[in-house]
Nucleic acid binder design. Structure first.
Length: 437
RNA sequence: GGGGCUGUGGAGCAGCGGAGUGCUCGUCUCCCUGUCACGGAGAAGGUCGCGGGUUCAAGUCCCGUCAGCCCCGCCA
């Protein structure tokens, strides 16, 4: 007999079907007994009266893999409107150990319990609420791909093992590479720019690695970045594209997973079609005036400012996401393009969403001579270093004006759902204290 | 790296100087024919993170240490 999924059972009322899955819940009442089976489609309840069949289940723990033949009965009292009667069980994988966490009710996401949550991740993820986080995340990823492809982007993959030299800023992981030193990619930056010379519009969704000793609710040592790069654009077009992308992702995810999002008490983000943009100087000024704390000397936004300006934008600009533009050159990377008329400012932006930075982007310096000059000034490195040489080659042989952005998949998921820690939106988080599971 | 907070059966918590570490969930046994956070009766399961100290008496107070979390810094 071919397998029928739990969610499809209601279509087979009166017929005998085969369901395969995991024992999710046992309620043995005596003469009348219920169990719930979980498969990839969801849950189905089985009603057991036959004592011999009940005996097969005795001693088996949640997680037991089993298959069951049973007759589908329409039953409004059961989840999904149908349940299985007169079941015959076959135990496929017997589980006799009690699971370390209960998976049939919500798991604790309190900060002090996250350690337990992650230590038991392999089992805890079977919880339907945990599952929903990563279904939502999968749709975030899918909808990003769909939107970018609809705009003529080509998806590609860049290498994550790189020769020593780096773009500066974050610390990188160093590792032995057959006697030479290699690093783990801190971004897809150089490769996506190189690919602009090939396809004009490219993106990838892959892991990136940072060896920062950060212990916060926003940072991990490994995370997934959506890296996009676009040729023949200016800053306004770039900001518009990202605005449209974010709006389209929010719509897609809410359309597909509204019940799951509401289970997490999520609210649909209020976003303007064109996300509002405020300059760094303006935000410092507004924040300093509102709070009395002077941040006008800061290069970047401090975390409190990020939260404050998001509140401000939600209340005054009709958007829970807001761009920060016009970054001081002192905080710019060597590949950032500076404003022609204001060389103290870079054409860089961050996108803040619900108090957290979810994306960063910029126009890139595409003129070879200027780029080499900025490289030398900013990093002190030689253009002949293996880490820069091939990147620069792309410019020497013609890259158009271009720009792009990197967006954190886990941070976006976290903020869409309303979680408090980016690790909760990560299947198997990696941070300064955790390397397993 | 700096500051703060927290470590108590498998999970989540209470106890904060004094009788026998208590509760909820889970597990096991028994009862239960519509449960769905089932209900009822009983049972098992603890080096109270670890090491010192104070005290007649220490999960409880002090010191150290380890682990985790939160904030700051770094960073995205």
């Amino acid at each position: 007999m071919t397998r029928t999924l739990a969610a499809e059972a209601a279509k087979h009322v009166g017929k005998t079907i085969l369901v395969r899955g995991w024992l999710h819940k046992k309620r043995l009442l005596g003469g009348l007994n219920f169990i719930v089976i979980r498969d990839r489609s969801g849950l189905i309840q089985v009603v057991i009266k036959d004592e011999q069949e009940v005996e097969k289940l005795r001693g088996l723990q949640i997680g037991t893999v089993l298959s069951v033949n049973g007759q589908v009965k329409k039953e409004p009292r059961a989840v999904g409107g149908a349940e299985l009667h007169d079941p015959k069980f076959e135990i496929e994988v017997e589980v006799s150990d009690e699971p370390p966490v209960e998976i049939d009710k919500p798991l604790s996401h309190k900060p002090e319990n996250l350690d337990t949550l992650f230590d038991n991740r392999a089992i805890g993820l079977r919880n339907l609420n945990e599952q929903s986080i990563f279904k939502i995340q999968a749709e975030v990823e899918e909808s990003i791909s769909r939107y970018l492809k609809s705009q003529d982007f080509i998806k590609f993959n860049s290498p994550k093992l790189l020769p020593g030299a780096t773009e500066g800023g974050a610390e990188v992981f160093r590792l032995d590479y057959f006697g030479k030193e290699a690093t783990l990619a801190q971004s897809a930056q150089f490769y996506k720019q190189i690919m602009v010379g090939v396809y004009e519009r490219v993106f990838e969704i892959n892991p990136t690695y940072r060896a920062e000793p950060s212990a916060t609710t926003r940072h991990m040592t490994e995370f997934i970045t959506i890296d996009a790069e676009i040729g023949f654009v200016d800053l306004d077009e770039l900001l518009d594209l990202l605005s449209n992308l974010v709006n389209s992702v929010v719509d897609a995810v809410w359309q597909k997973y509204e019940p799951e999002l509401k289970d997490w008490n999520a609210t649909k983000p209020v976003l303007s079609a064109k996300l509002p943009a405020l300059t760094m100087a303006d935000i410092h000024k507004k924040y300093s005036q509102a709070t009395g704390e002077d941040t006008t000397k800061e290069l970047d936004l401090i975390p409190k400012e990020e939260r404050w300006i998001c509140d401000y934008a939600a209340k005054n600009l009709g958007s829970e996401a807001v761009y920060v533009t016009e970054w001081p050159v002192a905080d710019a990377k060597f590949y950032h393009k500076l404003y022609n008329d204001r060389p103290k400012l870079a054409e860089r932006f961050d996108l803040l969403f619900r108090g957290v930075e979810i994306a960063t982007g910029s126009m890139r310096e595409h003129r070879y001579d200027k780029l080499v000059k900025q490289l030398k000034e900013k990093t002190g490195a030689s253009p002949d270093d293996a880490g820069f040489k091939y990147f620069l080659q792309a410019f020497k042989y013609g890259l158009p004006p271009h720009g792009g952005f990197g967006m954190g998949l886990e941070r976006l998921t976290e903020q869409l759902i309303g979680l408090n820690n980016v690790k909760e939106a990560t299947l198997f988080p990696r941070d300064i204290n955790r390397l397993a599971p």
